[in-house]
Computed example of a mutant assay.
Amino acid sequence: MDTRTQILSIASDLLQRQTVNGFSLQDVADRVGIRKASLFHHYRNKEALVADVLENSLNGFRRRMEGMRNQPAQRQLEAFLDIYQRHIGAGSRLCSVSGVTGDWDHLGEEPRRWALALLHEQCGWLAHIAELGGYARNTEEADAWAEQVMVRIQGAMLLSRVQSTPLPLERTIAQLRAECLETGTMG
């Protein structure tokens, strides 16, 4: 793995475990095994690094979901939920967007833009699933459905993190699955 990729991977992990103000460039340099000054060959400041982490998260989300585009709605929803349950690591980590929201008012324009893009992409994908799966009758309902799924998932991730257990997220995902399978709707 090249140095830039290592920097991004470590910064992403720190962002998800400690949030944006919970780590420093020195923390990243120490974990990569380079001097802090060497980070500036790759990133002009922490804000640029965080923006790149968020952009990388967005691109990773797009790659995962693009491969699912022709699948049934339930399978797409399972892939979406799997990102939170298995790839992020409920109980020990937050998603990248949650890693910056606590400091939103002090966050620079570039990281904000990428965080919003990632959030909008996720909500857009969920709205697509709602329309495809018949969980909503129109675009407005699909958007509301997507918003509610995000609220429930993000809230469960926060509870899981604070309680240091994946149980709140696991219960929320189980309930979402049951609602979709049993009634064909969520709400």
Rank of each mutant, 00 (worst) to 15 (best):
R171F: 15
R113N: 02
Q148H: 13
P166K: 11
A90V: 06
L81K: 08
V100P: 00
A37F: 09
M157I: 12
H42N: 10
I10P: 03
A90Y: 06
L169S: 03
V162D: 02
G108P: 07
L58F: 08
K46I: 00
I173P: 03
R4H: 12
L159P: 02
V50G: 00
E179C: 14
F40I: 07
M1N: 07
A117T: 05
G108L: 00
E140N: 13
L77Q: 01
L94K: 02
M1G: 14
S98F: 04
D82A: 05
E147Y: 13
R64L: 14
M186T: 10
G134H: 07
E147K: 08
T139H: 13
D103L: 05
M186W: 14
G124W: 11
M157S: 01
T172M: 15
T139M: 08
M65S: 05
L49K: 00
S9A: 14
A156H: 02
H42M: 08
R17H: 10
G99W: 03
Q122I: 08
M65N: 03
N56H: 14
S164A: 14
I153G: 08
I88M: 06
C180Y: 02
L159K: 15
K36R: 13
A48W: 10
V151D: 06
R152D: 15
V32L: 10
Q26H: 06
I129L: 07
M150L: 10
A127E: 03
D2H: 11
R69M: 11
G33A: 05
L8C: 02
G67W: 10
V151M: 12
S38R: 11
R112L: 00
M68Q: 08
G102Q: 12
A90E: 09
N21R: 11
M65G: 02
M157P: 00
D13F: 09
A127W: 06
L167F: 08
E131C: 09
E66H: 15
H42C: 04
D105Y: 13
K46A: 01
A117E: 07
R75D: 06
T185V: 15
L118Y: 05
L169D: 00
I34K: 04
I34C: 08
S160D: 02
S96E: 14
R69G: 04
D30P: 03
H128F: 14
Y135M: 07
I153Q: 07
Q76H: 09
L116R: 08
F61Q: 12
T172L: 11
Q76L: 05
Q26S: 13
I7D: 01
G91L: 04
L15V: 01
G33N: 09
Q175E: 15
Q76W: 02
S24F: 10
R75K: 11
L94I: 07
V53H: 00
Q6T: 12
A174E: 15
L167M: 10
T3S: 11
Q16I: 01
T101H: 07
R75N: 04
E141R: 06
G187A: 14
Y43C: 03
Q163P: 01
L107V: 08
E170K: 10
